[in-house]
Simulated scan of single mutants.
Amino acid sequence: MHSDTPERYVMEAPIEDLSKQEDIQTAKFAVKRLEYRANHLSLEGKPFSIEAFGLPLVIGGLSVLAAIYIDRRFIKKKTAPKTKQM
């Protein structure tokens, strides 16, 4: 993996590969979790992962719609009895 640059830190190539496969924010988080001071890494890839934030929003929205449907379709609301007006 590092035959062309043996002086590099072992995790630099996988972190750079992570930024290409996923996104730059994920790679930066991995660098932070490893507590590696990497100011010289060349991170390339998408700047932001739409899937990581969009999927929970879509699932949350669908859950709210399902809850509203179930509430209106299957749960009977008790209504106050109508009073007769004279």
Rank of each mutant, 00 (worst) to 15 (best):
M1C: 07
H2N: 08
S3T: 13
S3Q: 06
D4N: 06
D4S: 07
D4M: 08
D4Q: 08
T5Y: 15
P6W: 04
P6H: 09
E7R: 14
E7I: 11
R8A: 10
R8M: 04
Y9E: 15
Y9K: 14
V10H: 10
V10G: 07
V10I: 13
M11Q: 10
E12P: 03
E12W: 09
E12Y: 07
A13P: 06
I15E: 04
I15N: 03
I15Y: 00
I15V: 03
E16A: 10
D17S: 13
D17M: 11
D17A: 14
D17F: 05
D17G: 06
L18H: 04
S19H: 00
K20M: 10
K20T: 06
K20W: 02
K20D: 02
Q21A: 10
E22W: 02
D23A: 14
D23Y: 05
D23K: 12
D23L: 09
I24P: 01
Q25G: 04
Q25A: 11
T26R: 01
T26A: 14
A27K: 00
A27H: 00
A27C: 03
K28M: 13
K28S: 07
K28Y: 14
F29H: 05
F29R: 03
F29C: 03
F29I: 02
A30S: 08
A30M: 04
A30H: 03
A30Y: 13
A30F: 09
K32Q: 05
K32N: 12
K32H: 14
K32L: 08
K32F: 15
K32A: 06
R33W: 11
R33C: 12
L34D: 04
L34Q: 04
L34I: 13
E35M: 08
E35Y: 05
E35N: 15
Y36R: 15
Y36D: 05
R37A: 12
R37I: 08
A38S: 11
A38R: 10
N39C: 11
H40T: 11
L41T: 00
S42W: 01
K46I: 08
K46V: 11
K46N: 12
P47E: 10
F48Q: 03
I50G: 07
I50E: 03
I50L: 13
E51Y: 08
E51R: 12
E51F: 08
E51I: 07
A52Y: 05
A52K: 15
A52G: 14
F53C: 06
G54Q: 05
L55V: 14
L55C: 07
L57D: 03
V58S: 08
V58H: 02
I59N: 02
I59G: 03
G61F: 15
G61I: 14
S63F: 04
S63E: 01
V64P: 01
V64R: 07
V64F: 15
A66E: 01
A67Y: 14
A67S: 11
I68V: 14
Y69I: 02
Y69D: 00
Y69R: 04
Y69W: 02
I70G: 04
D71W: 12
R72Y: 08
R73C: 11
F74N: 00
I75Y: 00
I75S: 00
K76A: 15
K77W: 13
K78G: 04
T79K: 00
A80L: 07
A80F: 02
A80C: 11
P81A: 07
P81S: 07
P81L: 09
P81K: 04
K82V: 11
K84F: 15
K84M: 09
M86P: 15
M86C: 09
M86A: 10
